[in-house]
Design a protein around this nucleic acid. Structure first.
Lengths: 120, 120
DNA sequence: TCTGTCCTCAACTTGTTGGTTGAATAAACG
DNA sequence: CGTTTATTCAACCAACAAGTTGAGGACAGA
């Protein structure tokens, strides 16, 4: 399994959790520390720390250090990777839907089927 | 937790598995039955059936019935939902990065900081 | 160096997931 | 009706994920 595949595994898995998607939404507005983030959730600070770790391992966020603070900030690169993956199949699914639609319109409006049995 | 949130939970979780992403890739080319899909994987047909079920519960695929065959086909709607979610935060992350970049360039190249503290 | 603050690591519990095998269902065909 | 084909259900297991609590590490300041 190549690294890109594992990157996508981790990224999708990370965003499958609503708490982590909410963290992403907050971090999109501004960087924040684990402590600051934790204030908004009904769970221990350690749990939030774990969630941030998961986001980090997925490459969705990075950490820096300024004095005692270790602010978390969003990184666009993996979002880009995911976006491209999804867009590709969204487009194909739509395309196939459009063609099926056109085919149905044709075979119902026009009774001859043009012997196009090889739909491949 | 609203329905849209749960939809995203299931969709991201579904795509976190490489086998299921591969199924999506195959189905993007053409509809297929569970049996046909299973030929490509080193696992039981039941396991593939389960994967397809997960994709179905996530709303990523739908089933139809023609004679004994129950072909699976890709549905674009949830891909669209995911794509929009990701794009939103990808854009915000990039935007924030650009602004930080600009700020750094400015404060290093130009020593005055224009008192633009209100980054909102 | 001691202290306080911020954060992470370790160990544990509980629920979920991905796989297995064997039995059951559904529809077409003889 | 019985058989074949295609698929799912049920029970089980191992691995993992999400939360908990308690202890420990890193750094700034006195």
């Amino acid at each position: 399994m190549d690294e890109r595949t594992e990157q996508l595994n981790r990224a999708f898995a990370a965003l499958a959790d609503p708490t982590r998607r909410d963290l992403v939404a907050r971090l999109a507005c501004d960087d924040a520390t684990v402590g600051e983030l934790a204030e908004h959730y009904d769970m221990s600070l350690q749990a939030v720390s774990k969630h941030v770790k998961v986001l980090g391992e997925a490459g969705l966020v990075t950490r820096s250090r300024e004095a005692q603070r270790r602010p978390v900030h969003l990184d666009a690169d993996v979002f880009d990777l995911m976006s491209k993956w999804i867009e590709r199949y969204r487009r194909q699914a739509e395309e196939r839907y459009r063609r099926l639609d056109a085919l149905l319109a044709e075979t119902s409006g026009d009774r001859e089927q043009h012997t196009e049995t090889e739909a491949s």
